[in-house]
Design a protein around this nucleic acid. Structure first.
Lengths: 159, 159
DNA sequence: GAGTATTTACTCGGATACTCGCTGTCCGAGTAGGGCCGG
DNA sequence: CCGGCCCTACTCGGACAGCGAGTATCCGAGTAAATACTC
């Protein structure tokens, strides 16, 4: 049950886009270079974020990606869901209805107790992630982190 | 980020072992039959539980598996960890140290803010799972579920 | 100098291979119960 | 009848294939800016 690598990349990209000027788009190539990750695959990840309306993309010269909304309007949970999908971690296969002595369908109206426990835990997980926004990530970031991002972005603009 | 199927099987097996008489071992073959899952693979799963000292196994005739401790002494979290491993869901690859403008190692002493958020969410998830034991699962189960398990076990004993 | 058609370079997006972990299976080592023999 | 020995059937455990999701990559369609030309 490891989380996809794309989640880390996505959050770092959102963070970077929030730190630098939002009016200026950043290309997938630049984002990949800054983070030291393969460009082609990152593009695929970014597309998922666009599909979820977390980022917006502009094609052609001077194009690239930018945040679709204010940083405070996008939660970490939304980013995770965009990459990992919204399906439950624990998928109840209803094995209580299998075997030589299956439980009657009427008794299965009530959700399996095991699934209930797992889903409740996942709910707590989602609640925690829903409480943090991209803006919070920027606020809590170390000064040095923000500084290097801004410096890098300035070099981009001057060139 | 889907959870392994073995988790569901493990929890159902632990539940069943807790419901029936604990002094009597149940073979992997019987457990697989009751739940309608492949026996060979279930054996592999059960071995993980034995390695984690959640179950104990007895070989030879009249052998099988049984709970290693009281049902109230084993949490759902322990079962999940036994199958999925204790590694973090979110593995921080420290991409802030990569790229053309890497963050200085001294600044990386403090944990990456993104990793901190993800780990906190996982902590909430684990806390929720740690609050439920196998005994709780038995208590909360529907009467019909317990009844069919006991009936099935009785047939086993009589044979 | 201003407007416009054209060029052009640059962007994203979908179709296409590759890898690793979960899934599934098999047969062999080891053991404890059950039967047999002897006293 | 009772005790001990041997046999046997049954159990788990580790080694061996198969598949699907995630990972990684490439090239083509589309676009908006820059440019050159005309009025």
């Amino acid at each position: 049950m490891r989380m996809s690598e794309g989640v880390e990349w996505s959050l770092h990209c959102c963070w970077l886009l929030a730190v630098v000027d939002r009016k200026r788009a950043i290309t997938a190539s630049r984002l990949a270079s800054f983070h030291g990750v393969p460009e082609a695959y990152l593009t695929k990840i970014l597309k998922s974020l666009v599909d979820s309306e977390i980022l917006s993309s502009t094609v052609g010269p001077r194009g690239g990606f930018r945040l679709a909304r204010e940083p405070s309007a996008t939660t970490v949970l939304a980013v995770v869901d965009a990459i990992e999908g919204t399906g439950h971690h624990f998928r109840c296969e209803e094995i209580r209805q299998r075997g030589p002595v299956p439980l009657s369908p009427t008794a299965c109206r009530r959700q399996c107790g095991i699934a209930a426990v797992m889903n409740e835990a996942e709910r707590q997980w989602r609640r925690s992630l829903a409480g943090v926004t991209i803006a919070d990530l920027v606020t809590n970031a170390a000064t040095q982190s923000r500084a290097r991002a801004v410096r890098w972005a300035d070099e981009l603009y001057s060139a």
